[in-house]
Amino acid sequence: MRLRVEFTTEPFDLDEVPAHAVVAREVVQDAELDSVDVGPFGNTAEGGAEAVLGTVDTLLRRSLAAGATRISLQVNVIGAGEGGR
C-alpha cells in the first residue's frame, strides 16, 4: 500500500521559520520516502505505508517537542488500490 501525507505545523511565524517547522522538514527529508514537497504553507510526502506511518510518528513527536502547538495532517491511500482496496 502507498500513502500520501499532507501536513502543516503551527504556530506560523512570517518573520522566520519556527523550530518546529525546521524539525518537520528535516524528518520528512531524512525519511526513506519516494517524494517530498516542502512549502511555506503545507508539505506533502509519499511512500510505502510503513515508511509514511513511521515518518508521521517521528514527525508528531519531534515537532511537538520543538514547540508545535498544532499539527494538522491528512493521510490518503494512493496509486493502485485507491479507495481502500
Score class of each variant (00 low, 15 high):
Asn43Arg: 04
Ala65Met: 02
Val36Gly: 01
Arg70Leu: 09
Ile71Asp: 11
Asn43Val: 10
Leu60Lys: 12
Val56Phe: 02
Pro40Phe: 03
Arg4Met: 14
Asp13Gln: 03
Arg70Ile: 10
Glu32Pro: 02
Pro40Glu: 00
Gln29Phe: 01
Thr8Leu: 06
Gly54Cys: 10
Ile71Cys: 04
Leu60Glu: 09
Glu26Lys: 13
Glu26Gly: 14
Gly39Phe: 08
Val28Gly: 06
Gly54Asp: 02
Arg85Gly: 09
Thr58Val: 12
Ser63Phe: 01
Asp34Glu: 12
Glu16Pro: 00
Glu46Ile: 09
Thr69His: 06
Phe12Ser: 12
Glu82Ala: 15
Ala45Pro: 08
Arg2Ala: 00
Ala19Glu: 14
Glu32Ser: 13
Ile71Ala: 13
Asp34Ala: 12
Val56Trp: 02
Ala21Ser: 12
Arg61Ala: 14
Asn43Ile: 05
Gly81Pro: 07
Ala66Thr: 08
Ala68Ser: 14
Leu64Thr: 11
Glu50Tyr: 05
Val75Met: 05
Glu10Pro: 09
Gly83Ala: 10
Thr9His: 02
Glu82Thr: 15
Arg70Tyr: 03
Gly83Val: 03
Val52Asp: 07
Val56His: 05
Arg25Glu: 09
Ala65Glu: 15
Val27Ser: 02
Thr55Lys: 01
Gly47Asn: 00
Val17Gln: 04
Pro40Ile: 02
Glu46Ala: 06
Leu64Gly: 09
Asp15Phe: 05
Arg62Gln: 15
Ile71Met: 02
Gly79Cys: 07
Pro40Ala: 13
Gln29His: 01
Ile78Asn: 08
Val38Lys: 01
Glu82Val: 15
Pro11Asp: 10
Ala66Phe: 05
Arg25Leu: 04
Val77Gln: 15
Val75Glu: 06
Val23Ser: 04
Ala80Ile: 06
Asp37Ile: 10
Gly42Gln: 11
Glu6Arg: 03
Ala80Asn: 13
Glu26His: 09
Val22Met: 04
Thr69Gln: 11
Asp57Trp: 06
Val75Ala: 07
Gly47Cys: 08
Ser72Pro: 05
Leu33Gly: 03
Asp37Glu: 12
Glu6Ile: 08
Glu50Asp: 15
Val77Ser: 06
Asn76Val: 04
Val27Gly: 10
Val77Ala: 15
Ala31Gln: 00
Met1Thr: 15
Gly67Met: 13
Ala68Glu: 04
Val75Gly: 04
Ala51Ser: 11
Glu46Phe: 08
Ala65Arg: 12
Phe12Trp: 11
Glu46Pro: 04
Val52Asn: 08
Thr69Ser: 12
Asp57Pro: 00
Ala65His: 08
Val5Ile: 13
Gly83Cys: 05
Phe7Ile: 13
Gln74Met: 07
Gly48Tyr: 05
Thr58Arg: 15
Arg4Gly: 10
Gly54Tyr: 10
Val27Cys: 04
Leu33Glu: 02
Gly83Asn: 07
Ala80Ser: 11
Gly54Trp: 11
Arg61Phe: 06
Gly67Arg: 05
